[in-house]
């Protein structure tokens, strides 16, 4: 991954970064640091805070996290890229993750993915729809295999999604 990420709308990702760890967030981080014997251990939580506030983990955001935790930006980037849940680019307003691992796949998960690509007009996996509202990705086991097909829409898990229920689900998202 290149640090020089370009947002899908063509905007340069190196725009001015408003600091995240100020005010209440700084207090929250300070409280968090008391729970661990090292500052480094607060890295994943700090990245979560960044993503919650900014919608993604931008290069400038990584720099800020590096500086508050006394790590190097390269180290932070190395960790961020290991994990799948941190967004290295801005994503659609509704980030849709459909599990297609085998237990869900035997219940028809691939058809559910295709229905989402159709209904959201994303067309392709990982590509944000032209209106910026949706990004659809396939995800590995969500730990809800008995409720095939489970779909995460941002932080909410929707159980037992079928091809027939996708249209209503998408219509219900603003």
């Amino acid at each position: 991954m290149s640090l020089h990420a370009i947002a899908p709308d063509g905007q340069d990702a190196h725009e001015a970064h408003a600091p995240v760890f100020v005010g209440a967030r700084r207090t929250e981080l300070d409280e968090l640091l008391t729970r661990y014997p090292t500052k480094m251990a607060a890295l994943l939580p700090a990245l979560w805070m960044l993503q919650e506030d900014r919608g993604w983990v931008s290069p400038a955001g990584m720099n800020e996290v590096a500086s508050v935790l006394e790590l190097t930006p390269a180290y932070v980037q190395g960790v961020v890229t290991f994990y799948t849940m941190y967004h290295l680019h801005p994503v659609g307003k509704h980030f849709v993750q459909v599990c297609t691992t085998t237990p869900c796949n035997v219940c028809g998960a691939e058809d559910v993915v295709n229905a989402f690509l159709r209904e959201t007009k994303c067309g392709e996996l990982g590509v944000t729809s032209a209106d910026g509202r949706f990004t659809v990705v396939e995800v590995e086991c969500l730990g809800a295999c008995g409720f095939a097909t489970p779909v995460m829409v941002n932080d909410a898990l929707v159980e037992c999604v079928s091809v027939d229920s996708v249209q209503d689900l998408v219509a219900g998202l603003d």
Binding site: L47, Y83, M85, E140
Partner: peptide, 12 residues
């Protein structure tokens, strides 16, 4: 006795 919740970030 302290108990803390730590959230993972996606990696089996």
């Amino acid at each position: 006795v302290d108990v803390h919740v730590h959230k993972g970030a996606g990696a089996y």
